[in-house]
Design a protein around this nucleic acid. Structure first.
Lengths: 199, 199
DNA sequence: CTCGAACTTGACACCGTGTCAAGTTGACAC
DNA sequence: GTGTCAACTTGACACGGTGTCAAGTTCGAG
């Protein structure tokens, strides 16, 4: 029973993920997800109280499946600040396309649903932590541009690496993912690192 | 009659604008706008066929009232490319906060409403033109970073100056408007201009 | 065999958008 | 004055999506 329960739950999450990833428009309804999961619409509500909660759970599920922690581990073990910055941009930058569908839907609900707003803010705060760590590493190495405080440099990096910027460059401008990552590294270096350090 | 008509129309647009600017959440309904304009909900539909059309008209109305053309004129008459870049960032960057409320509501409809999507895309294309002109001026001066094509430099500047970035820096990070404009100028210069030109 | 959890079916309330139809009001024409 | 026309009002309603409720059904474990 409880086994069944868990399986159905993940089937719902997988279905939601798949639909959000595929269906460009965020017009993914509870009924669509139910159908894709092979159950009735009501059954979805047996597992998730609201659409917002389902979306939030989907992002968590994604993190688990895609193992975000492992990806970020690389950046934490970098030797120099500049390397850490690059590794972080690489890890996060390459994670964005994988969560993009869900992220979009969640962001679309921000205005109407407080829980969704908090969930998104929480996840973005985690990204900010990564930015902060990278900037502090630069500071420790003494290569952080003196124009910026750690706080301000973190703000800039965080904004540079935000999902909407990724969306605009890869969707609207048609940049391939590789170029996005490459140029973001350049930009971050030029903006934050003094004397064009390393590499 | 036709006088009355026009007056009511602008009263609706002003009401919509005011509500969108004030009410943080984009939960501004047709009834709210009608009430704020002092007319019935149905009367709004006598002037605008759908909510999307009303929002689009509101942005146009804003452009008219705020005289966007005049603001951008300054950047067009700049002597050097670097000056043109700065003037453009100043003009557009200081325009964002004024249109932000409406922009938010319009962007929120992008997924569900094709007309809204096109309207927003159209306005952003106009901003891109401004970016493109500034970048071309840099190129003409021979100060455009050789790392980037005109196209790519335009993409970068356009993304840097996108509304979500402004939102994140001023809302989430609490930057005052002045700092936003100042840092954007720095960033754009570092990213696009060779040898830290001028000033 | 019975009990209970997971799930189904179908109905319904709620909300916001957009439509429809039948008024009311007031300016202007003659 | 009377007629007329446009702008606006009032109130009802269809539609689509979310979330709720109640009465089944199914199936495995005890």
């Amino acid at each position: 029973m409880s086994r069944e329960n868990v399986e159905t739950r993940t089937r719902i999450l997988d279905a939601a993920w798949k639909l959000l990833e595929a269906g460009q428009g965020s017009g993914v309804r509870m009924g669509d997800i139910a159908k894709a999961a092979g159950i009735s619409r009501q059954a979805v509500y047996l597992h998730f109280p609201t659409r917002a909660e389902l979306l939030i759970a989907t992002t968590r599920h994604l993190d688990e499946v895609k193992d975000v922690q492992a990806r970020l581990a690389a950046s934490r073990s970098a030797a120099t600040g500049a390397e850490r910055l690059e590794a972080f941009i690489e890890a996060w930058g390459n994670y964005i396309p994988e969560i993009h569908g869900v992220a979009r839907a969640l962001r679309a609900m921000q205005d109407t649903d407080e829980a969704a707003r908090l969930a998104w803010a929480d996840r973005m705060a985690a990204v900010r932590d990564g930015c902060h760590a990278a900037v502090k590493a630069l500071k420790t190495d003494g290569v952080l541009s003196p124009r910026h405080s750690v706080r301000e440099a973190t703000d800039i990096l965080w904004s540079l690496l935000s999902v909407p910027v990724w969306e605009q460059l890869t969707r609207d401008c048609g940049w391939p993912q590789r170029r996005y990552v490459s140029r973001m590294k350049d930009l971050a270096r030029k903006a934050l690192v003094v004397r064009q350090a390393t590499r």
